[in-house]
Simulated assay, not measured.
Amino acid sequence: MNLSRRRPSSTAGGQTAVAERSRGGRPPRGRRAALSLVVITPLVAEFTLGATPIAMAWLILLYIPIYGFGVLTIRELLRRTGGGPGSTLLMGLVYGLIEEGVALQALTSPHIYHVARWAPRPFGINTAYAELNLAYHAVFSVTIPIVLVDLIFPGLAHRPFLRRRGLIGAGVVALLGVLMLRASVPPKEDPGYDVPTVALLVIVALIAVLSVAALWLLPRSGRPARSQTGALVPSPVTVATACGVATLLYLGLLYPFGGAHRPAFTHGGWTLVPMVVGAVVAVAAWSVIRRWSAAAAWSRRHLLAAAIGALVAHTVFGLAANTHTVANGVGLTAAGVVMCALLALLDRRVRDVPGSGLRAPS
């Protein structure tokens, strides 16, 4: 975590900008930042949740192309088009549709992971699974890794990491990652199943519409100045606690503990209740964070605190939901301890960086 402790003068900043343009627009340390995002993304999305147990940590290599390079591609597009927090979340939904709907086919498969038993399936859609995982990808697979890397490399937070050729290369690797996941997981988990043509067309249409909205409509609609100088912002500890509680509520409401994998389990209309409550929790959390981040007092430490609260909560949830053996529990606990130590170090560095108390993006 190499954070600059000194701010360059305006002259030095101008010279740096000229040097960057002379090298084709790639910021210094851009490759290092890009590599950090490629590595951090699957660790946040899979490993620290316990979805990939420590005994199978090698699977992270399988996830790096789709997770790491996929999110890197998304970030590069967002920085080139000026997309903000809303665009990031929309592109997170796009990522979720690609992975869950196209690569894994889990949004419509009647057999994979037993998710068809979680809730009613109108139009053949695994509704509870879709609600749980699309939101999870938007927050934990896309938004939080981008936030963390932007805080680790604050000088590059609002710039692309790569040149145009690097962006194209990252996109190609991400596409190969989609094909690799499609060829490896569905044939094993649900052999012989293919997404119905109509469902696939709908998913592709949603991907296109959300991408246009995120990369073209939202950035060009302009974001009005919303800084509320006198608005109160709670302490970073309170922000972290609120985000942690919201994360635990959302995941806990939608994940069917115990019964989801039993053959005799059958869903009923009552499962719509936690789905509705979960949606309310998600909207409420977004509204509160959006209001807090509009205040002039919102800082990089608040932004990091929001990420820390969500990350710690999702690992605690993973201990309850994804560790079925003592070894897995010990492994995830160890991973959680290391994660907390690294986040604490990042928090200390953020506090030490000059200007870290200034307003930060939401």
Score class of each variant (00 low, 15 high):
residue 88 T to G: 02
residue 48 T to P: 08
residue 307 A to L: 13
residue 204 V to L: 14
residue 230 G to D: 14
residue 244 G to Q: 09
residue 226 R to M: 13
residue 242 A to H: 12
residue 187 P to D: 02
residue 297 A to N: 07
residue 81 T to D: 00
residue 179 L to Y: 02
residue 269 G to D: 12
residue 171 G to P: 02
residue 145 P to T: 06
residue 171 G to V: 05
residue 322 N to V: 12
residue 136 Y to E: 10
residue 285 A to P: 00
residue 166 G to H: 03
residue 69 F to K: 02
residue 333 T to A: 06
residue 16 T to F: 06
residue 16 T to N: 11
residue 240 A to D: 03
residue 220 R to P: 05
residue 323 T to P: 05
residue 136 Y to R: 11
residue 127 T to S: 13
residue 256 P to A: 08
residue 288 V to A: 15
residue 185 V to I: 15
residue 36 S to Y: 08
residue 185 V to W: 10
residue 128 A to E: 10
residue 204 V to N: 06
residue 203 I to K: 02
residue 65 P to R: 01
residue 277 V to E: 01
residue 250 Y to E: 03
residue 37 L to R: 14
residue 315 T to C: 12
residue 197 T to A: 04
residue 296 A to E: 08
residue 35 L to Q: 00
residue 223 R to Q: 14
residue 191 P to A: 04
residue 354 P to F: 13
residue 258 G to T: 09
residue 358 L to V: 01
residue 32 R to K: 05
residue 247 T to K: 02
residue 179 L to M: 11
residue 113 Y to F: 14
residue 343 L to H: 07
residue 54 I to S: 06
residue 94 V to T: 12
residue 310 A to M: 14
residue 249 L to D: 04
residue 273 V to E: 01
residue 291 R to N: 11
residue 202 V to T: 05
residue 73 T to M: 08
residue 312 V to N: 14
residue 310 A to L: 13
residue 200 L to Y: 03
residue 324 H to C: 04
residue 250 Y to G: 10
residue 58 W to A: 08
residue 42 P to F: 09
residue 34 A to F: 01
residue 90 L to R: 05
residue 95 Y to K: 05
residue 230 G to T: 04
residue 1 M to P: 01
residue 299 S to K: 12
residue 54 I to W: 15
residue 158 H to F: 09
residue 126 N to P: 03
residue 67 Y to R: 12
residue 9 S to P: 09
residue 348 R to D: 07
residue 218 L to Y: 13
residue 316 V to E: 04
residue 139 V to Q: 06
residue 103 A to G: 07
residue 271 T to Y: 12
residue 161 F to H: 14
residue 224 P to W: 02
residue 250 Y to H: 12
residue 313 A to L: 05
residue 313 A to R: 02
residue 174 A to L: 04
residue 37 L to N: 06
residue 92 G to W: 07
residue 83 G to W: 07
